[in-house]
């Protein structure tokens, strides 16, 4: 049922070597390929538009949902997925999109993911993008993620895209209620003529909400990256943006962090840095026997880890 290409795509975007344990829904070329639900996690196809509803029962602990999307044809695919993470649940959600495009026309996947993370629930959401194939057709991915984090809930977002995707605009919007916690880790590497834009807006509306955004990127060749990272504090809250880019060759990077406070007890910090690899770092590793190329790879790998 799964071809060798499918399997590789799944492994890249969801670390899946075989069909996953727990709940999953695999979507291929715009259609559901296979699905499994568990006693605690239900997956239902939407009726009004393409996409699924994932419902995690309150109190569900230590379960995972994998919802990878793979494209091996030059098609445009658009889905709307909704996630209901019940109160006190603790789950891992692994999404991600792998594109194998050998054709000359564009392969595009746009996903709108909406999450409701209920009271005291914990969710880790991992989204990986991966593109391959030697066709001239572009590989395009535009995810939009909207997350409502209720009182006392914790959300960890891990967003990774390392090479292979020609164009991406990633929009992420999060609202944090009382005592809610958010940690975002973004890892991006673009090369060739790739374009990537990441817009993250976090509204801290509840008392003692905390948010931390750590974005690290490497821009190589002629690629371009734009980051708009925005923290908005409407209550006593704490937020921290760290946006760090390594720029190489003829690449361009714009980092536009914004912090806005609407409450005198909001504490918001942003740090942004763009620079090339420090020559001392390269030199030190070369004095240990690495070539310049190996030293560079070691530094980039560590940086994006």
């Amino acid at each position: 049922m799964l071809s060798a290409i499918d399997k590789r795509l799944l492994q890249e975007v969801a670390d899946l070597h075989t069909i996953p344990q727990g709940a999953y829904n695999i979507r291929k070329n715009g259609q559901g390929l296979s699905r499994q639900t568990t006693a605690n996690i239900d997956i239902v196809t939407k009726i009004d538009k393409p996409g699924i509803d994932v419902i995690v029962k309150p109190g569900t602990k230590g379960e995972s949902v994998h919802i990878p999307v793979i494209l091996s044809d030059s098609i445009s695919d658009l889905v709307y997925n909704t996630f209901e993470i019940g109160a006190e649940a603790d789950v891992l959600v692994v999404a991600g999109c792998g594109i194998h495009n050998t054709g000359s026309s564009k392969a595009q996947h746009d996903g709108v993911h909406e999450f409701f993370v209920r009271k005291n629930a914990k969710m880790k959401y991992v989204e990986k993008h991966y593109g391959e194939g030697d066709g001239s057709g572009a590989r395009v991915l535009n995810p939009k993620t909207v997350i409502e984090v209720e009182e006392g809930a914790t959300v960890e977002l891990e967003m990774v895209q390392i090479r292979g995707v020609d164009q991406t605009v990633r929009d992420t919007e999060v609202r944090l209620h009382k005592n809610a916690r958010l940690i975002v880790t973004e890892r991006l590497l673009t090369n060739l003529d790739q374009r990537a834009e990441s817009n993250i807006t976090v509204e801290l509306v509840g008392e003692d909400a905390t948010a931390q955004i750590i974005s690290r990127s490497v821009a190589q060749d002629n690629s371009k990256q734009i980051f708009h990272l925005n923290l908005r504090g409407y209550a006593k809250c704490r937020g921290h943006i760290q946006c760090d880019s390594i720029i190489m060759q003829n690449a361009q990077v714009s980092a536009i962090p914004e912090i806005a406070a609407f409450h005198s007890d909001a504490e918001l910090v942003h740090e942004a840095a763009i620079g090339k690899i420090a020559s001392e770092q390269l030199m030190k590793l070369m004095t240990l026997g690495l070539t310049e190329k190996e030293a560079e790879e070691t530094i980039l790998q560590g940086f994006l880890k």
């Binding site: 760090d244 030190k284 530094i299 560590g302």
Partner: peptide
């Protein structure tokens, strides 16, 4: 000596 972002002590010593 330089500092890094992401390189651990064990990685450096292995290199």
């Amino acid at each position: 000596p330089p500092r890094y972002k992401g390189l651990t002590v064990t990685e450096l010593l292995s290199i």
